[in-house]
Each structure stands twice: as C-alpha cells, then as structure tokens.
C-alpha cells in the first residue's frame, strides 16, 4: 500500500535529527471524523510566531494578571505561500525550504505522530544549519475540513498533493483529498496563476485526480515546456519518502500539474467578478 509509511531503517541518527522508528503511526486517519485538535477560527488567528519565530514575534499581549491573549493579525509582512497537503514525513518541505528560502511554507498532516516527527525534524535542521529552514513549518490538521481556516482567498501560490491515500473502494471515494467539491476550496485558496501539483503511484487514482482537475473550470493543465522547466516537478518524485520508495521498487508514478485560472464569460454563464 502506498500509504504504508512504516520505515524500518534507522536513518538520520547524526545531527540530532529525529528517528522515524519512534514516530510510527497508523497509516490511515479518518478525515470524516470530528476533530479534537485546536483549529484557528480564521486565517488571521493563525499564530505565525509559533511557526516562523525567525520572521515573526509573538502576536500576544500580556495583561496585568499575567494572562496573555492572542491578537488576531490583520496585516502581515509575509504570508504562507506554499502548502503541502498531507506532507507525511516532510521530505518535500525540506527540499523546497532551501530551493525557495524566502517563501513561507507549511505542511499539513492529520496524523499527530507524523506531524510531531516533522516538527522535530525541522527544529533539528534549523539548529544544525543556522539561518536555514526558518521558512518551513508543519501543522496537525484535517485539511479537507479546515483549509479556509488557515489561508485567505488567493493566498497560496503552490499546493502539493503527493501520494495521497488512494481509497480504492467506491464508497470511500468521498474521502479522497482531490475531489470535484474540494477543488472549489483549493481554487479559492490559490491565487490566479498558482499551481497545484499532484502525484501518485496508483494508476486509478492518477486518472481520477487528472479527470477532476481537467473537468474543473478553474484549472488548466500547464504546458509540456513549463512542466519540463519547473524545478519543483522533479522534486515530486525524488524528494519525498514515498517517492523514493516507489523509485526503489521501480514503480510508476502519475503526475498532474494544473494552473489556477480565472473564469471568463463562457457558455456556462459564469461571469467573473
């Protein structure tokens, strides 16, 4: 199963990096269940100082009694631009962090232990490489439910969906992270011109994701030239733990990269605002 992330090798035991074997988790998490972790009320309530202390100071005030309250932030100098949905063990995030050192990026992962691992991994990397990896962070959340709580309209320039849970059974298709209705939300979050990257090693799911994107009026496929020139495309299969595993087994991968476009007056009768 492509989602089975049990890694048996002992890696990264130098530099104080966390070891995966201490962060094993069930491969699946139910995206339909009620969440019990805290969710920000609105994007302005996301505490950037927790995620990017190098760039932001705590958004809190402390009153006379020593009780600190969080101040929602209306204007920020910098906003998160990349979101890796279901970031897993964070391989892509780590690579992107050095490739785009000035861009804030966040990984979203629903399994708490895996999130904990990525958090430790980023902290260790920041420690070992002063000045680097300050732009990457991770949050434990259910992105299928709470994307609008984290990002404003048109905030993101790139979204990543790498090796998502295939959910083979038809009755579980509604649990897939790429679906016609969820694409509406991703289109809302992406700025016009923003790119959505998807990759999977399951042919059936690859077809599904491509079909969903193809049929959506707010997305169009990027050109072959652009696909070949985009340095991020290469990372999709090489940077992630899941991608490396597929490569080890000489597996096939299926990639779909689409651009967020704006609606023009079409025969659908939808008009641009």
């Amino acid at each position: 199963m492509s989602e089975n992330k049990k890694v048996k090798t002992k890696a990264n035991n130098s530099n104080g990096l966390p070891r995966k074997r201490f962060y094993r988790a069930r491969a699946h998490s139910n995206p339909l269940s009620d969440s019990h972790f805290p969710v920000p009320i609105a994007p302005s309530h996301v505490d950037y100082s927790l995620h990017y202390p190098h760039y932001f100071h705590p958004d809190t005030t402390t009153d006379d009694n020593g009780v600190s309250t969080f101040i929602p932030c209306k204007t920020r100098s910098k906003k998160i631009q990349f979101a890796d949905i279901g970031c897993g063990f964070g391989g892509l995030l780590i690579s992107l962090s050095t490739l785009f050192p000035e861009t804030l990026m966040i990984g979203m992962e629903i399994r708490d232990k895996v999130t904990e691992y990525v958090k430790e991994r980023i902290l260790a990397l920041r420690e070992a490489n002063p000045g680097q990896y300050q732009n990457a962070s991770v949050v434990r959340t259910n992105s299928m439910k709470y994307i609008p709580n984290y990002f404003e309209k048109g905030q993101l320039s790139k979204m990543f969906f790498l090796f998502p849970d295939p959910h083979f059974k038809e009755k579980n298709h509604r649990r897939r992270v790429i679906s016609p209705h969820l694409l509406d939300e991703y289109a809302y979050t992406l700025q016009v011109g923003g790119i959505i990257y998807t990759i999977t090693d399951v042919e059936e799911l690859g077809e599904w994701m491509k079909d969903c994107l193809e049929d959506h009026p707010l997305f169009e496929a990027i050109s072959k030239e652009e696909f070949a020139a985009d340095p991020v495309v290469k990372l999709l299969s090489s940077a992630t733990e899941e991608g490396q595993k597929v490569a080890r087994n000489d597996g096939q991968t299926f990639t779909a990269v689409y651009r967020r476009i704006s609606l023009v007056a079409t025969d659908l009768g939808i008009h641009e605002v």
């Binding site: 509406d184 939300e185 659908l268 009768g269 939808i270």
Partner: peptide, 15 residues
C-alpha cells in the same frame, strides 16, 4: 446562471 454544472467559485468564507 446555469447552476446545473456546479457552483465552483467561492466568493468568501465568513469565519
């Protein structure tokens, strides 16, 4: 105008 093909464009979320 023709909603049968879906309402894809989100204007906003009131949170």
């Amino acid at each position: 105008k023709n909603p049968f093909s879906g309402a894809h464009e989100i204007q906003s979320f009131c949170l």
